[in-house]
Computed example of a mutant assay.
Amino acid sequence: MKVLMVGWELPPLNSGGLGEACYGLAKALSKKGVSIDFVLPYNFNIDVDFMKVHYANDRTRPDKIMGPYLTYTKWMKAVKEGRASVFDYLSQVLEYAENIRNIATKVQADLVHMHDWLTFPAGLTAQEIIGKPLVAHVHATEFDRTAGMGINEAIYEIEKEGFKKSDRIIPVGGIVRKTITERYGINSNKIKVVYNGVENPDKPSIDPSLTNLKKLGYKIVLFLGRITLQKGPDYFVRAAKIVSQYCPKAVFVVTGSGDMQAQMICEATDLGVIDKFIFTGFLRGVEKNSIYQAADVYVMPSVSEPFGITALEAIKNRTPVVISKQSGVSEVLQSALKVDYWDVEELANKILAVLKYKSLPKDLKSGGVKELMNLTWDKSADDVLGVYQQLI
């Protein structure tokens, strides 16, 4: 089986979970005999041995390539500050759709598989040329990225057209499935939920970070992800205020970057807990796993989380998790403490429970590791392969 997969990013040049999900799924599919031609908008100089990577535009990736999580509001702010041009917001997406024509005319494929709205115009173009079934993989909708706070109508229309013209739609969770049916008017019969996973449940063999703090008896509470409205960083700060009152040796580590970082720092300052915060910036690979392993608890207070692969990454590193009920991963993960993102007091209570009761984190870790056995990319690939086989 041959698949033309249309993506926007891949590790190590990824800005979040989209690239990692594409990589993990593609690798697992290739192990099952699927031949993948993976297309990127620009030359990312990606080196992989399990699929062939094409660049729709062979020039090196521009410094200001549009991120898959960029919202219209953030883009317009960048325009006003002179960091971007108003004409670039959709131009890269439309340019991708034009440039993919040359690849689509040369590649043989049994179907086209596109990932999120940035690739939809290019995926639709490729499908028109190849004339094979089209699959839309939905990692987040415009309603998820903006947390419902003012969607971009142009992006909404691109998503809606992509959904309507796709033969199958694969959302990464039930929350996204509900959004697609209710907000976009798509028949649920052509939607199949496929959850994300991890490559394997084995704990990475590395040295944890922040060992000096741990030796002094400090407890590490970790927030890892984009510091944006969608991820609920403001709720994390407010919970930190409560936690610090009952656990003075709690340290709150924030790993990631985003447009709400300054607001997060200001709020922590106003609440008098900024001295208890450490901001590491965006981490990858060994450094990211090291910070997971240093943490006593990982907290994911997302306002709208299509899946939440970081929760699985934390469990893989044997770190207990507290997650938002408003996340796709909460639908499949039982060995986790779950809370409504807006309930700051309950969020703090659950963090404190993990920090104070030794048996609780032990049970969460052992149960989570068992669950990871069925939450792998191999399992996700089986589900996607089932979708492919229905279409071919």
Rank of each mutant, 00 (worst) to 15 (best):
K338I: 14
A294E: 13
G174Y: 13
I65V: 15
I151A: 04
M300Y: 06
A122C: 10
L312F: 02
D202S: 14
V251G: 06
L4W: 02
A154K: 02
D296G: 08
T211F: 09
N212I: 14
G17K: 00
N57K: 11
K31R: 03
G82Y: 01
K192E: 15
S330C: 13
L213Q: 12
A353Y: 11
V79S: 04
Y235F: 13
S35V: 01
H139L: 14
V344R: 05
G328M: 06
K178R: 12
K165C: 04
K164F: 10
L229F: 11
K276F: 11
A122R: 06
K2S: 08
P41F: 01
P248G: 00
M114Y: 12
Y42T: 01
Q390M: 09
M300W: 05
V303P: 01
L222N: 13
G232Q: 08
L385D: 06
G174T: 10
Y292I: 12
N14H: 08
I291S: 07
I278E: 11
L337K: 12
D144F: 01
K316Q: 12
P306G: 02
A268Q: 05
D343H: 11
L372W: 09
N187I: 13
T280V: 07
S290Y: 07
D382A: 05
K192F: 13
Q245K: 08
I291D: 04
D259M: 02
G150Q: 06
E305T: 00
S30Y: 00
N289R: 04
D37S: 04
D234P: 04
K64E: 14
R284E: 15
R59I: 15
E98H: 14
D58C: 09
Y184S: 09
A336V: 14
L29H: 00
W8R: 12
A311Q: 08
I151P: 01
I130A: 12
N99G: 08
T228F: 01
G33D: 00
P68M: 08
K338Q: 14
V93K: 02
V243S: 02
K80V: 14
K365P: 11
G150T: 03
A295S: 12
